[in-house]
Design a protein around this nucleic acid. Structure first.
Ligand code: MN
Ligand code: MN
Ligand code: ZN
Ligand code: ZN
Lengths: 146, 146
DNA sequence: AATACGAACTAGACTTTGTCTAAACCGCTG
DNA sequence: CAGCGGTTTAGACAAAGTCTAGTTCGTATT
């Protein structure tokens, strides 16, 4: 289940409350727990990783609530859903515009500053459609020894 | 299961054989069936769509073989695997470099000519890594009536 | 303080995509 | 014709995510 052994600092509760408020999300104990964990730093976590981390702490949050909450966060733009790994969705706590570097052999996901990549001009979009986002993913692998 | 009611023309068998040969893949009846279907035109199909289409024709190809074959095609670069829809992988028969426009509400996936999007410069990559690909995805939705 | 009510949470069943295993099959070659 | 890789197959399995129906929670009203 691969719980990273990172520092377990959480975002202060007041800051988590502010984040939810800014996005019009009612604060609940479980939503705050998830926000405090996810926004502790810039990172990309899957639902299962969050579930596992919460279990490590004493925070009992059910699987259904973790999924519901992440969907809610994503809908309101509080987190960015990153579709890169075909097996699972990542939730990105970095809200600044940026792109991604994906190491296919390790599963590691890295942020790439947007300045280095220029989208020249988007194609003319069909009328009545709105752009939700432009995602750039650079897939890399460790070079095969030949 | 959503089998599109498109014309059921298949790629001529000889051309499918040539494609496999070019990529060092041994030709079998099942692999040819899949290639003839997928490369009939530029399109993006999921494994399940291919399985369903094959069933419509009299071609009995097992689920395991469809998945095995698509993985084989993807590894050898005969098809391009497109990770966009978190629920399933698409296999792209358009081998020319290009980007994608994804309609999140319909699931429709459209090609975008690469000329319109410029990648200015890639970040300095860690030594010993090779770029497998750079994918640009524009996610759009039908504008909500407000 | 007791009650009512909508929102949120939960356990667990369920669905879907994709992988794996073990047996059967197929085309060759010796 | 026996043997041998490589391929195909059915069906079991795994994992992510969704759904349902019942419970709990927070708050407002009496
Ligand atoms: Mn989700
Ligand atoms: Mn090629
Ligand atoms: Zn990111
Ligand atoms: Zn395409």
């Amino acid at each position: 289940m691969n719980v990273s052994p990172e520092s377990s600092d959480l975002l202060p509760r007041e800051q988590a409350e502010a984040l939810l408020a800014q996005h019009g999300i009612a604060a609940t104990e479980q939503r705050l727990e998830i926000a405090r964990l996810l926004f502790a730093r810039h990172q990309h976590l899957s639902a299962e990783q969050i579930l596992a981390q919460l279990s490590l702490q004493a925070s009992r949050v059910s699987k259904a609530t973790v999924y519901n909450t992440l969907n809610l966060f994503a809908e309101t733009g509080l987190v960015r859903e990153v579709i890169i790994d075909p097996a699972k969705r990542f939730y990105d706590s970095n809200l600044d515009p940026h792109h991604h570097l994906f190491h296919t052999d390790t599963g590691r996901l890295e942020d790439v500053p947007p300045a280095r990549i220029q989208i020249a001009d988007l194609p003319g979009l069909p009328a009545g459609t709105e752009v939700l986002g432009v995602d750039v993913v650079i897939r890399v692998a460790t070079r095969k020894p030949q």
